[in-house]
């Protein structure tokens, strides 16, 4: 009796596991499939317009070659995006981290007010400010072909407002570390550099990663600020312009190829830094 019951239980578990594996495999396929399609389309040199075919008519590297030839502005866009993302991720990380460090570690008169104020500011839709910023950038000549410095300014300027996640992390570091360092004779700047920063590696990497990915894939601001001027576009705005009705018929496959080339650096970063990204996401959500 007992043996049979035991048997049935393990069978039940086995069936459950098989069902789980099948579901997981299905889910994985659903999530991977669009990339497979994207990859396949990018190699289609026979039909470079939008197509309902899954497999390329003619297989070749023509689309990739097109991206890197003088005819397309892709290289320029790619370079623009790279510069923007690089500068933004350095400056934004510094500003965001300074803000979260101060809000987590110091108690000063305006602290609560600042936090509430930034909370309220964050409830205004971001594009609202864009209308003004665009006009201002236009007057100082940082739109159109010169959009890159303008975009950097826009991305970086308000980055202090995204302090939540790293503040959540900093809040978990015991305050007595700061106090011990204070008694040991460190200045506040030394505490920041020699005690806190080395302990914040995971969250710093997370911040760098997210602030790199933001401008890397941003479309709206880049589109608006570049004003349709191809010299000032980033990849998102540029590649999107290939999907305009008059371009799409021979630019869809190059668009896919461009997408693959854009996705590769972030995927490589993720391959190595996934752990930190996951930590940041979970930590940030729990701390709210």
């Amino acid at each position: 009796m007992a043996e049979r019951k035991h048997m049935s239980m393990s069978t039940k578990r086995r069936i459950g596991n098989v069902a789980s594996y099948v579901t997981l495999a299905l889910i994985s396929i659903i999530w991977i499939l669009p990339f497979v399609f994207l990859l396949l389309r990018s190699f289609d040199v026979g039909n470079t317009g939008p197509s309902s075919a899954i497999f390329p008519e003619k297989f070749g590297f023509g689309n990739y070659i097109y991206l890197f030839t003088a005819g397309a502005d892709f290289l320029k866009w790619y370079f623009n995006t790279f510069i923007i993302a690089l500068v933004v991720c350095v400056v934004q990380t510094a500003m965001q981290f300074s803000m979260s460090y101060v809000l987590s570690r110091y108690r000063f008169k305006l602290r609560k007010f600042m936090m509430n104020f930034m909370l309220v500011l964050g409830m205004f839709p971001g594009f609202l400010t864009m209308i003004v910023l665009y006009q201002v950038l236009k007057t100082i000549g940082l739109t159109g072909a010169n959009a890159v410095p303008g975009l950097i300014l826009v991305y970086v300027a308000s980055s202090g407002m995204g302090y939540y996640v790293s503040k959540g992390f900093l809040d978990t570091l015991p305050k007595s570390l700061d106090e011990a360092a204070l008694v040991d004779g460190a200045t506040r700047a030394q505490i920041f550099v020699r005690v806190i920063l080395p302990l914040c590696k995971p969250i710093l990497i997370y911040t760098v990663l997210t602030s790199f990915m933001g401008p890397w894939g941003d479309y709206v601001f880049a589109y608006t600020v570049s004003l349709g001027n191809e010299a000032g576009m980033n990849v998102a705005a540029g590649l999107n312009s290939w999907l305009a009705p008059n371009m799409i018929n021979d630019h869809f496959a190059p668009f896919c190829a461009g997408g693959v080339v854009v996705a590769i650096p972030v995927m490589v970063l993720f391959l190595f830094l996934q752990k930190y990204y996951v930590e940041g996401v979970t930590g940030g959500a729990v701390k709210g």
């Binding site: 990339f35 990915m213 479309y219 999107n240 999907l243 996705a263 972030v266 990204y277």
Partner: peptide, 14 residues
């Protein structure tokens, strides 16, 4: 997680 790594403008437009 890798689907997060693909910039949204590519995946969504595609």
């Amino acid at each position: 997680v890798f689907s997060i790594a693909i910039p949204q403008f590519i995946s969504l437009l595609f």
